[in-house]
Amino acid sequence: MYGPKVKLRFFFILLILSILTLTVFLVLKSLEENVVYFKSPSDVKLMTELKNKKIRIGGMVKKNSIAMSTNEVNFIITDFKNEINVIYSGVVPNLFSEGKGVVAEGFLKDRNFFQASKILAKHDENYMPPEVKAALK
């Protein structure tokens, strides 16, 4: 019911879109290393060499792992497979707490110790009133 020119233009647009999608996919795939905002402790374990470069590590703050002293906070980031110890001196965000998501920015001292220069709290996708949270416990 449509003329041949209409069909031609339709398939031309379709072709452009598929090629563009493929291009963007390949570019993002090869840049994945830089697209991710943080690495997990397991990613750190798999790293072949430790570069002296600023990186971010994210995961959960392990339960009962936060130790606060006068000018330092120590805690463990876990992804439930591997763990990494974090040393940080400075102010932590309000939502930073045990069993919650966290992203630490800083330098790896070795495979198990991380010197953080900035701590960000990661919020999860759960939204509920306090009463509901209490009822869930």
Binding site: V35, V36, Y37, V103, K122, E125, Y127, P129, V132
Partner: peptide, 23 residues
Amino acid sequence: WWNTLHQPASINILSKSSIHSSM
């Protein structure tokens, strides 16, 4: 797809939403 600071979607059409109905 990637590790992001931003949280994943709370509202899902196919599975249960992780946001309370009052919100």
